[in-house]
């Protein structure tokens, strides 16, 4: 036996051992970035000032709670993650992390994030974060994701709570402004994901996850996309009339909604034959616009808050 083979025989059982980055990947970092940004906006636009350090730590714990949900989602969905190309390289199906480890990490981080948020900000914010984790893991992941093609709508609700938690950190409660901020992401998520589903070859069917494009067809998906675009416009424009809105927000929202409704209309008016002819140009541009749509709406709210601190902003 050579030295080289001896070395391999000793370590062969550990070659798939997880590094720190594999545990970090369990927390779904890309989803966390959306959570951080929207929770930050929710906290900054609230009428009650928060100590900068407590604000920073609160956002960190909200992000940690979001990460805990991600780990628990990967724990429960390890079977379907292994069947889909997009998710088969996640730490559990790749064999780097066991599902028990993911479950333990998710539970521990859930407890730590909720308790420390309650101590840092207030009890209500801590309970709200706990409810969000429960909603995402139990209501969405365990119950409805594999049951209904409206799963995106339910999942979108879980992703829409962070600005409300940010607002609760500052105010200790809920108000019409925070509910409307929730409604932005809630109404935005379905058309965003369904437009993606139209131009990507997803393998949800192999994993027995009902997706609207498969269960109701692509034409119905096009109708759904346009149908969500209209009430989304009402919600986003409605925020302009609240205490966190103003002229700059209103102008940004009118432009974005005009473009978004136009994009939704283009998707509605064409069929798959036309879409394939130009490689789903309208669907792709609608998807890209949707990313900008969400980011710019929350950025405009942040701008309004900044302007108000100088005595400008509002109407």
């Amino acid at each position: 036996m050579s030295d080289m083979s001896a070395d391999k025989s000793i370590t062969s059982g550990f070659e798939n051992e997880a590094g720190f980055s594999d545990y970090y990947a369990l927390l779904k970092p890309r989803v966390m970035s959306l959570v951080v940004f929207t929770a930050f906006v929710g906290l900054m636009v609230a009428p009650v000032p928060v100590h900068p350090f407590l604000a920073f730590v609160s956002i960190l714990f909200i992000a940690l709670g979001g990460g805990a949900s991600g780990a628990l989602n990967m724990w429960y969905d390890h079977d379907i993650d292994a069947k889909m190309k997009r998710t088969m390289n996640r730490p559990i199906p790749a064999g780097k992390v066991t599902k028990e480890e993911a479950f333990g990490l998710g539970c521990a981080l859930s407890g730590i994030s909720c308790i420390l948020l309650a101590l840092t900000a207030n009890i209500f914010a801590g309970l709200f974060l706990a409810f969000t984790i429960f909603f995402y893991v139990v209501i969405y992941t365990m119950w409805l994701k594999r049951l209904t093609p409206q799963n995106i709508v339910i999942g979108g609700a879980a992703g829409a709570f962070p600005p409300m938690i940010g607002w609760a950190v500052a105010t200790g409660g809920v108000s019409i402004e925070s509910v409307l901020m929730f409604m932005i992401t809630f109404m935005w998520t379905p058309p965003h994901f369904w437009s993606l589903a139209l131009f990507t070859k997803t393998d949800y069917a192999d994993a027995d996850v009902p997706m609207l494009t498969v269960t109701h067809g692509r034409e119905a998906t096009r109708k759904h996309i346009f149908a969500y675009t209209l009430p989304l416009a009402v919600v986003t424009l409605g925020i302009a009339a609240t205490s966190i809105g103003g002229w700059s927000y209103l102008i940004v929202s009118i432009i974005l909604n005009a473009l978004f409704i136009r994009g939704g209309w283009q998707i509605l008016r064409r069929d798959d034959a036309a879409a394939e002819a130009d490689d789903y140009k309208a669907e792709r541009s609608y998807f890209k616009l949707s990313l900008l749509y969400l980011f710019l709406h929350f950025s405009a709210l942040l701008l309004e808050a900044a302007l108000k601190s100088f005595g400008w902003g509002g109407f």
Partner: peptide, 20 residues
């Protein structure tokens, strides 16, 4: 005999411990 003390596995474990 060329014994390799530092294996890739050790680096990975170090990164995990340092991260934690």
């Amino acid at each position: 005999m060329d014994l390799k003390v530092e294996h890739e596995m050790h680096k990975r474990r170090f990164s995990r411990n340092a991260g934690l």
